[in-house]
Design a protein around this nucleic acid. Structure first.
Ligand code: FES
Ligand code: FES
Lengths: 162, 162
DNA sequence: GGTTTTCGGATATGATATATCCTTAATTCC
DNA sequence: GGAATTAAGGATATATCATATCCGAAAACC
């Protein structure tokens, strides 16, 4: 059970977009360069964010991506589910139905106990991600990343933001 | 991020083994038949349980599997990790290192904030699974499964247990 | 009109999950 | 001792999914 690397990419990109001044856009090219990622493939992750309405896009030479709402209104789960999908990690294939002792036509009323427990764990994972806002990540980063690097990075970004 | 179906299989098999009388073994063949699963492939899941020391095995005509310890001493995480592995679902590929603004040779002191948050969610998932014992599942099942089916199933199992 | 950009579709490649087969060694039963 | 049964593990095949690249269309900017 491994999340795709697109999840990491999307999170880092959102953190950068969160620092963008109102109304400016940042292109896939800039985001790919900044993170050392394949531009074409990163583009797919950004498209997922766009389809989930987490970011707005515009075309043309000064186009690119920006957050669709305030970074305090976007949480980690929004981003993770945008690229990873919202399907549960555990799927019940109902093998209990194959029990040869079961009466013909017998139908279970509830989802089975095994699945319910696994789904509970899934919910705990989701709840943790739901509680962390993108703005929280930005706060942490702005404290942890050396001030010099933090500033030069946003200077670099602003030079490329349309 | 999808768990393999072996996880479901292992959980159901453990629930059955938990109902086995002291010292008896149940073969892969019986477990596969009971759940309608490919015997050879289910065998791989059971081997994983064996390598994790969750079950004991014995060879020969009356051989098979039994729990290595009491069902109250085995939790869901034990079983899930036995077949799924214990690697974290999120891996930090350190793309922050690719930032062109970083000074040469600069080395980060801690794991990055993104990874720490994702790992926290992972821990929440694991903790939930850790809190549920195999004996808890058996209790739930014994209440939920119709008494008739529950009894006939264990009669079926006992007839095949060596 | 030419350039730059997002978007979607097509396609290729690699890794992993799923599944089967076969050999070996241990155990039971006769 | 010999035959039958079983788990363990290696080899292999197939399907699905993650990763990655490429291209054409449409939109925006100059
Ligand atoms: S029948 Fe297996 S998890 Fe529901
Ligand atoms: S650098 Fe991306 S998660 Fe650590």
């Amino acid at each position: 059970m491994i999340l795709k690397s697109q999840v990491e990419w999307a999170l880092h990109c959102c953190a950068i977009l969160a620092g963008l001044p109102e109304g400016r856009y940042l292109s896939t090219k800039a985001l790919a360069e900044l993170h050392g990622l394949p531009k074409e493939y990163l583009s797919k992750a950004l498209q997922s964010l766009s389809q989930a309405s987490l970011v707005n896009t515009t075309l043309g030479p000064s186009g690119g991506y920006r957050l669709a709402r305030a970074s305090s209104e976007i949480n980690f789960l929004d981003i993770v589910e945008a690229v990873e999908g919202s399907a549960r990690s555990f799927t019940c294939t109902n093998i209990r139905e194959n029990n040869p002792c079961r009466a013909e036509g017998y139908c279970d009323s509830k989802p089975c106990a095994v699945a319910r427990i696994m789904w509970e764990a899934d919910e705990a994972w989701r709840n943790t991600l739901r509680r962390v806002r993108l703005s929280d990540l930005v706060s942490i980063l702005s404290e942890e990343v050396p001030a010099e690097l933090w500033q030069s990075t946003f200077a670099w970004v602003l030079k490329r933001a349309g």
